[in-house]
C-alpha cells in the first residue's frame, strides 16, 4: 500500500474510534513517506486520544519541522503540554497556533484562543502556588524566630533558678506563662500583617466591562477595533463576520479588512490576565 492509502485506512479507523489501529496505519505511512506533515498531525491527534502526550509533542515537532505553518501541529502541541502541566511552553505553541489560525481564517480560531487562555490560567496557578508557598515560608520563618526567642527567655529563667535556688519566692510558672502568651500575641500579629499585605485575595473578583468582549462575554485576548471605535475579540468578531458582514452595533457594512488591532487594550487585557488568570479565564 502507498503512504496515501495507509493514511486513508488510518483515517477510517480513526472515524470508527479505533485509535490503536489508526495509530498503526499512520506509523506505517510515515515509514514509507516521512515528508508529509499531515501524517504526523493525524498521528498526533490519535495519540492525543490515547493520552500519549509525549508522543503527541514529538509528532507535532516533526510536523512543524516539515511545515512551519502547520497550525494543528502548534495547536496540539499546546494542548499536550497543558496536559503535562508545562504551561509556559504550551503558551508559546498556543500563541503561534492562534496567529496561524487567524492568518489562515481557520474556523478553529476560537478554540485555539481558548487554549491560549487555558495555558495562561495554568501558568498563573503555578506562579500563584509558588508565591503562596514563598509567603508562607517567610511567615513560618518569622513565627519560628518568635518561638525560639520565647524559648530562650524561658531557658534563661530556669537557669537563674538553678544558679540561685533561694532568690526569693518568684513564681516561675506564671512568668513562663506570660512569656508564652506574649509569643502567641506576637504570632497572631504577624499573621495579621501578612494577611493585610495581600489585599488582592480579598478583592471582589470581577473582570471590568471594558475588558470584556460584548459578544462572547469573556475577557479579550486579541482585541480589534471596528470603524465606530468598538472593540471585540478577533476570533469572535470573525465568527460573526462569517455570518454577516455588518457591524454588530451599528449594522453598517463591516469586513475583516476593516478591523484594526487595538494594541493598548490588548496590553491592558494581558496585564489583567497576568495578575488574575486563575479566575478571570473562567469568569
Amino acid at each position: 500500500m502507498s503512504a496515501e492509502e495507509l493514511k486513508q485506512a488510518g483515517n477510517k479507523f480513526f472515524q470508527n474510534g479505533d485509535w490503536l489501529s489508526a495509530d498503526k496505519k499512520y506509523s506505517q505511512a510515515i515509514a514509507i513517506d516521512s515528508t508529509n506533515y499531515t501524517l504526523f498531525t493525524n498521528r498526533a491527534l490519535v495519540r492525543m486520544k490515547l493520552l500519549r502526550y509525549e508522543d503527541v509533542i514529538n509528532d507535532c515537532m516533526s510536523a512543524i519541522n516539515l511545515n512551519r505553518d502547520a497550525m494543528k501541529g502548534h495547536y496540539m502541541a499546546a494542548q499536550a503540554l497543558i496536559q503535562l502541566s508545562r504551561p509556559s511552553e504550551a503558551l508559546g505553541f498556543a500563541y503561534t497556533a492562534y496567529q496561524l489560525a487567524i492568518a489562515q481564517h481557520s474556523k478553529s480560531a476560537t478554540d485555539v484562543a481558548n487554549v491560549v487562555l487555558e495555558a495562561k490560567k495554568q501558568r498563573w496557578k503555578k506562579l500563584e502556588r509558588n508565591r503562596i508557598d514563598k509567603d508562607n515560608s517567610m511567615l513560618n520563618q518569622m513565627k519560628e524566630l518568635v518561638k525560639r526567642d520565647s524559648e530562650r527567655k524561658i531557658l534563661d529563667l530556669r537557669e537563674q533558678q538553678w544558679d540561685s535556688p533561694n532568690a526569693g519566692d518568684r513564681d516561675l510558672e506564671s512568668e513562663i506563662a506570660v512569656i508564652r502568651e506574649d509569643a502567641r500575641v506576637q504570632m497572631d500579629e504577624l499573621e495579621n500583617v501578612f494577611a493585610r499585605a495581600d489585599p488582592q485575595r480579598y478583592k471582589p473578583r470581577e473582570v471590568p466591562d471594558y475588558l470584556m468582549d460584548s459578544i462572547s462575554f469573556s475577557i479579550m485576548t486579541d482585541p480589534v477595533v471596528t470603524k465606530n471605535g468598538h472593540s471585540y475579540d478577533r476570533s469572535v468578531i470573525m465568527d460573526h463576520l462569517r455570518r454577516s458582514n455588518t457591524d454588530p452595533l451599528t449594522r453598517e457594512p463591516l469586513s475583516v479588512s476593516d478591523l484594526r488591532p487595538n494594541l493598548a487594550l490588548k496590553q491592558v487585557c494581558a496585564e489583567f490576565l497576568e495578575e488574575n488568570a486563575g479566575w478571570a479565564v473562567d469568569y
Partner: peptide, 11 residues
Amino acid sequence: MFAQKRLGKEL
C-alpha cells in the same frame, strides 16, 4: 464555541 459561557453570564 462560547454559547454556554455567554448564556451562563446572561443568566
